[in-house]
C-alpha cells in the first residue's frame, strides 16, 4: 500500500500553494490597541516571513474609539490587503463572538488565536507548527507553566512569566489547580489564550462553547478533550501587558469559579 494514499497522510497535507502546503490565519480581536497593533503585526510578519510560512491576520476590531482601524488600514497598505484583513464589528460584543466573526473570513487551514498586547510573542508560532506537524495534532496550546513541550520536542525552551507579583501568581496557580482538579483537562495552562487550531476543529469546538470571559478559553480546552481532539503544549514566555493594565479582581475570581462549576456539571 502506498503510505501517501492513507487518510492520515491526506489529512496532514494542506491544499495551499505555499512551501508547506498550509496557510496560517491569525485572528486578532482588538479594542483600543492602536499602540500595540502595528508592533504585533510587525512581529507576526517577521516570524512568518523568516520561516517561509503563508499567512494572514484577521483584525476583528470592536469599533475602538482610539483609531485602531485607521492603523490597521495603514498596515494593510504596507503588508498587502490579502495579509492584513480588517473586519470590524459595531461595538464591544465579547471575545467568543469575535472569534466566530473572524472565523467566517478565514482563508487558511490553520487558525492561531492570541492576544494583541504582546503578552503572547509570535516567535513561538513556528514551534507550535513544528509540534503540530510532528504529531498531527488538532490543537497546540501555549503554556506558561511547563519547561518542556508535550509531546516532547528538542526545540522547546522553559516557559515563564514576567511582570507578575506574588498575588497574581498565587491566583493564577490556584485557578489552574482548581480547574485541573475538578475538570482534569490534561492541559497545564487553561487560562492562557495562545493557541493553534486546525480550522474545522476550531469551528466545531466554538459552536459548542457557551461561556464568556476568562472561562471561555478554559471551556474550549475542556470541550476539545471531551470531543476527543488531540492537544499538544509548547512552553511560552508571557510578558504581562506593557501598555495598559490587565484586570483581575474578586468579581473575575467568582465568575471563574462559577464557570468551573458549570463545566463540571455539563461537560
Amino acid at each position: 500500500m502506498n503510505p501517501f494514499e492513507s487518510n492520515v497522510s491526506r489529512n496532514m497535507q494542506g491544499s495551499f500553494n505555499s512551501p508547506d502546503t498550509h496557510k496560517y490565519s491569525v485572528i486578532l480581536p482588538t479594542y483600543n490597541e492602536r499602540k500595540n497593533l502595528p508592533v504585533i503585526i510587525w512581529l507576526l510578519a517577521k516570524t512568518f516571513n523568516e520561516n517561509n510560512l503563508s499567512w494572514e491576520v484577521i483584525v476583528v476590531d470592536d469599533n475602538s474609539p482610539d483609531g485602531t482601524q485607521e492603523v490597521a488600514l495603514q498596515l494593510a497598505k504596507v503588508y498587502g490587503e490579502d495579509k492584513i484583513i480588517l473586519k470590524p464589528r459595531a461595538g464591544k460584543l465579547g471575545l467568543g463572538t469575535a472569534y466566530i466573526h473572524g472565523l467566517s473570513f478565514v482563508n487558511g487551514d490553520f487558525v492561531i488565536i492570541m492576544d494583541a498586547d504582546f503578552s503572547h510573542h509570535p516567535k513561538f508560532i513556528p514551534q507550535f507548527i513544528r509540534l503540530q506537524k510532528a504529531h498531527n495534532l488538532d490543537i497546540v496550546t501555549g503554556t506558561r507553566y511547563r519547561a518542556t513541550s508535550k509531546p516532547a520536542s528538542s526545540d522547546a525552551r522553559p516557559g515563564g512569566v514576567h511582570g507578575w507579583d506574588f498575588k497574581r501568581k498565587l491566583v493564577s496557580r490556584g485557578a489552574n489547580f482548581l480547574a485541573d482538579t475538578v475538570l482534569n483537562p490534561g492541559v497545564s495552562d487553561l487560562t492562557g489564550s495562545f493557541r493553534l487550531y486546525r480550522l474545522p476543529v476550531l469551528r466545531h469546538i466554538i459552536t459548542e462553547t457557551v461561556s464568556k470571559g476568562y472561562v471561555f478559553q478554559m471551556e474550549m480546552m475542556v470541550r476539545a478533550r471531551a470531543l476527543g481532539y488531540t492537544v499538544g503544549e509548547v512552553p511560552i514566555t508571557f510578558v504581562d501587558r506593557i501598555f495598559g493594565d490587565s484586570k483581575l479582581g474578586a468579581n473575575e475570581i467568582v465568575s471563574y469559579a462559577k464557570g468551573i462549576w458549570v463545566l463540571f456539571t455539563t461537560v
Binding site: 502595528p38 508592533v39 519547561a147 512569566v161 511582570g163 501568581k169 498565587l170 496557580r173 506593557i242
Partner: peptide, 24 residues
C-alpha cells in the same frame, strides 16, 4: 510547588522591548 517552579523571564521582556523599538 507550582508557585516555586513558575519561572521569571526577564530576558523575554528585554528582548521584547528591543523588538518594539525596532518595529516602531
Amino acid at each position: 510547588l507550582g508557585l516555586v517552579t513558575l519561572r521569571e523571564c526577564p530576558e523575554a521582556y528585554d528582548e521584547l522591548v528591543g523588538e518594539i523599538a525596532e518595529a516602531k
